[in-house]
Amino acid sequence: MMAAPDPARRGRLLFGGFALVLAVWPLGIDDAYLVSVAITMLWFAAVGQAWNLMMGFAGQLSLGHTLYVGLGAYTAAALYVHFGIGPWIGVWAAVAVAAAAGAVIGGLGFRFGVRGVYFALLTIAFAEFTRIGFDHLDWLGGSAGFFLPLDHDGALPWADLRGPPLLFYYLLLAYTLGLFLLCRAVIARPLGYRWRAVREDQEAAAASGINVFRTKLAAAVMSAALTAPAGVIQAFYYNNLFPDQAFAMHRSIEMILAPIVGGIGTLFGPILGAVVLTPLGEALTLGLEALAIDLPGLKQTVYGVLLVVIVLRLPSGVWPPLARRLGLGDAATRTPDR
């Protein structure tokens, strides 16, 4: 067996290989179904990563993260439909709107000392409030839905994201990998250390000179901003938006499953969680179809059982023990040598 001396280097090599496989396989296997599953998988990996930044690193539980997906989706879609502004510009507006929402929620919550479960409820309340609001916003279609035109008069399919699923797959791949690298960079910086200090013990963090409010706010704003592009991609991939889907609470919960299963507070956990969960869900769906059983709640029930089991029996998730077995550390938890 080859013993690579440096786990960090080995980790980089393995991650590079993983990224390469994700980049290359669609070229060999041209299967619309597999591409659609992979799109779902990467989407959840990306939003899970963005959520994990706030919960895993800064310790702030958000159960309303679909708010930032929805706001991102509607912002970019509205700019496209009503003003003819394409998604490549729209995404920046989406990021700005989501960041502003994150700043409002984080600002209010953290300024007034809303902590833990109460903060989680605050995030749900904002998401639900917005959902009902959008139900009545006729300019954006209200509860009847908001639709993006399918036809495209531009020259290039990627300019307005009016292309085939594979285009979205590669877009999501770049987004997911980019988020991973960004998170890796941020947690190695002072801000990342401050996040972890605040996550572990706010009073002790404050006594170590950390401005707890600003540190938490930075996490809320960044996490919101980085979630928004997932909304934009969703809007242009599905071409329709409904408040009941875009802002639904069960979406918020679905979004956090991958990082919980993979490992809260790790870098690779959210990706691993999505790699495990999405195919599992698809297998369940296919299995039921094959058996001609129509049970709409089964997949969610299995996810629920999985959530309970992971939280009870493996609270640090699947990745940390797996990483140990592979002789790797996660950059989020690794101690560099002197």
């Binding site: 250390y193 200090a197 572990e200 002790a204 170590s208 101690t335």
Partner: peptide, 20 residues
């Protein structure tokens, strides 16, 4: 009240970040 889930080194490193 050390930061329990962080390493000893990171605990102290966080104190040292004050200097900016």
């Amino acid at each position: 009240r050390p930061f329990p889930a962080l390493t000893v080194l990171d605990n102290v490193l966080i104190g040292g970040l004050v200097h900016g």
